[in-house]
């Protein structure tokens, strides 16, 4: 159970930003990466999503993710979120962590210079975990060609009280790709893809890597539906690989 809580805490740490626009990419909506832009000044955004993690040698885990963000200043937002999960293996639901986030997009794309941003997340366990999980993420977004965008996210994770045989600090990175779909005839959906690697939480463990494909679709002036699929390409031998991870979510701003 503690392992599940820790995993949930780490999964939640690293959250989102941006307004409910299908072109503005938020972490976990539906893939892990995000772009370097905050949500609009004075706006709120409420995001909800369901994720199903399947395992070859285990029963699935269901995650519900909910987060509310506020653009408290130009190019800056804060957020609070939680991500309870239910393991069909143990038949138990846990609250995991409450996450507090700060995001700043300090440079937009100008000429050939990329957009740059960063976020800091603090995850505080609410159902049995110990210590505080911290994540610092650097984000770069750059247009290549005309409409294609590359997003690079680099993460540093730190646990104030790591469990025995797990790392106190680990690193990860995701390279994301996005492109509006349907131009020049429709303007309401964006295709996303990602490839990510992160260090295993196990002390001395190998890298974990995954790929994902997703879509964000504008449903209304303020609402965006997202859905994604991910699969683990390689994983440390002490961790279970997920052959299929499905995500569906909905975001609305107000």
């Amino acid at each position: 159970m503690r392992r599940l809580i820790t995993l949930g805490c780490c999964a939640l740490i690293a959250s989102v930003s941006l307004a409910s626009d299908h072109n503005n990419l938020d972490k976990e909506r539906p893939l892990r990466f995000e772009d370097a832009y905050s949500i609009a000044y004075r706006s709120f955004e409420f995001q909800n999503g369901l994720r199903l993690d399947t395992f070859r040698r285990g029963k699935p885990v269901y995650n519900f993710r909910s987060e509310i963000q506020y653009g408290f200043s130009k190019n800056k937002d804060i957020a609070i979120g939680f991500e309870p999960s239910y393991s069909s293996e143990s038949r138990k639901a846990v609250g995991n962590a409450v996450e507090f986030s700060y995001f700043e997009g300090f440079a937009r794309e100008i000429g050939d210079k990329p957009a740059l941003g960063y976020r800091v997340d603090v995850g505080i366990p609410v159902s049995g975990g110990k210590g505080v999980a911290l994540r610092a993420r650097g984000i770069l977004t750059k247009t290549v060609g005309q409409f294609d965008k590359i997003h690079v996210n680099v993460d540093v994770l730190h646990s104030t009280e790591a469990e025995p045989n797990t790392r106190q600090m680990s690193l990860g990175a995701v390279i994301g790709y996005s492109r509006p779909l349907g131009y020049p005839r429709r303007f309401d959906q964006t295709l996303l893809a990602e490839f990510g690697v992160e260090q295993s939480r196990q002390r001395g463990g190998n890298l974990n890597g995954w790929v994902g494909l997703g879509m964000r679709r504008q449903l209304s002036s303020t609402g965006v539906l997202d859905f994604g699929i991910q699969t683990d390409l390689f994983r440390d031998k002490l961790e279970q690989a997920s052959p299929v991870r499905l995500t569906v979510g909905y975001s609305v701003n107000f």
Binding site: D21, H22, N23, R108, E109, I110, G111, T143, Q146, F147, K149, P180, Y183, P184, R185, R186, F187, D188, Q218, S220, S221
Partner: peptide, 26 residues
């Protein structure tokens, strides 16, 4: 003209349609 005769039913993100213009004249 095609878009004007088949207009979108939701607001569009102009910056996403003109990324190079916005990079230059943000």
């Amino acid at each position: 003209d095609w878009v004007l005769q088949h207009p979108p039913s939701m607001p569009v993100d102009e910056a996403a349609i003109s990324p190079r213009f916005v990079q230059k004249y943000g």
